[in-house]
C-alpha cells in the first residue's frame, strides 16, 4: 500500500481522496490511490434520522444486544447506533425497493412482512410505544431504566406476543432492530458500524482479502494478517503493510 507522498498539500490530498471515494463506487480504482482515510469533515455520528430521545433508546438497546465486555467493544463502541441512523435515513429506511401498495392484510407468517410501515416508520412508532410502556411499568423511558429491566423488555419483545404495543407489533420491531444491530456490528466499517473492525476482530474475519490461493490448503493454520475494509485499514493501528 503506497503512502501519499509528503509533497502533496493537505488540500490536494483531500481533493484526491474525495475523488477516490466517488470513483471507486464505479470504476475499480487500484488500491494504491484508494483513500485510506475518510476526510475529517465527514462525521459518521452526524444525526440523520433519530431524534435525541430516539438515539438514547437505540444506544441503550444496542448496549444490551451486543454488550461491551472482556471480549471487546460492544455495538455502541463499534458505532452501531450511527450505522442504524444512516441506514434509516437512506433507501433501506424508506423501503425504497419494497412493494408497498395495498390492499393491506395481516397474512400468515409464511407470507412475511405485511406492515404498512417502512423500517424508518417502524422504528419511530415502536420506540415511542416502548418508551411509553417503560414509563408505565418502570416509571422511566427505556434508556433510563436499569440494564436488568432493559433485558426484560427486550426479552419480552423477542417473544411473538410478549408485549402488546398500541401501534406496531413489538416482535416485528425487535426482529428488525436485532437484524440491523448485527448488520452494523459485522458489515464493512465504511457504513459507520464495525468501528475499528470491532466485530470482525471478535470473530476472526479478515475482511475482503481477495486472495487465499496460498492459504486454503494449509489446514488448521490461523490466518494472521489483520482485518482490512473496502476503504483500507483505518482504525486497525496498522499504518503500512
Amino acid at each position: 500500500m503506497t503512502i501519499p507522498t509528503p509533497t502533496l498539500s493537505r488540500r490536494d490530498f483531500l481533493a484526491a481522496t474525495a475523488a477516490g471515494v466517488s470513483a471507486c463506487a464505479c470504476q475499480g480504482v487500484p488500491r494504491e490511490v484508494a483513500p485510506l482515510d475518510i476526510p475529517n469533515e465527514t462525521r459518521m455520528d452526524a444525526p440523520l434520522f433519530f431524534s435525541a430521545d430516539e438515539r438514547r433508546f437505540i444506544v441503550a438497546a444496542c448496549s444490551r444486544l451486543i454488550p461491551k465486555d472482556e471480549l471487546g467493544p460492544g455495538a455502541v463502541e463499534a458505532g452501531v447506533p450511527d450505522f442504524i441512523d444512516r441506514q434509516l435515513a437512506g433507501p433501506y429506511g424508506q423501503a425504497r425497493t419494497w412493494y408497498m401498495h395495498g390492499p393491506w392484510e395481516k397474512g400468515t407468517a409464511e407470507q412475511g412482512y405485511q406492515l404498512k410501515s417502512t423500517p424508518a416508520e417502524l422504528y419511530r412508532l415502536a420506540i415511542r410505544d416502548i418508551d411509553d410502556y417503560c414509563r408505565k411499568k418502570y416509571r422511566n423511558a427505556f434508556a433510563q431504566i436499569n440494564p436488568q429491566d432493559q433485558d426484560e423488555v427486550l426479552g419480552a419483545l423477542e417473544k411473538k406476543d410478549g408485549i402488546d404495543l398500541p401501534n406496531v407489533p413489538g416482535n416485528a420491531f425487535f426482529t428488525m432492530l436485532l437484524q440491523n444491530t448485527t448488520e452494523g456490528f459485522l458489515s464493512d466499517p465504511m457504513y459507520g458500524g464495525n468501528r475499528d473492525f470491532a466485530g470482525w476482530k471478535l470473530i476472526g474475519f479478515p475482511g475482503p482479502r481477495y486472495n487465499y490461493v496460498e492459504q486454503i490448503e494449509q489446514y488448521g493454520t490461523p490466518y494472521t494478517l489483520p482485518p482490512v475494509g473496502l476503504l483500507g485499514r483505518r482504525g486497525t493501528g496498522v499504518t503500512k503493510a
Binding site: C24, P30, R31, A34, D188, P208, Y210, L230
Partner: peptide, 16 residues
C-alpha cells in the same frame, strides 16, 4: 467496473 474486487466484496450492499 461492475464486479470489481475493490467494491464487490460488500456483504451489506449485495447480500443483505
Amino acid at each position: 467496473p461492475d464486479f470489481s474486487p475493490t467494491h464487490i466484496q460488500d456483504e451489506l450492499r449485495y447480500a443483505v
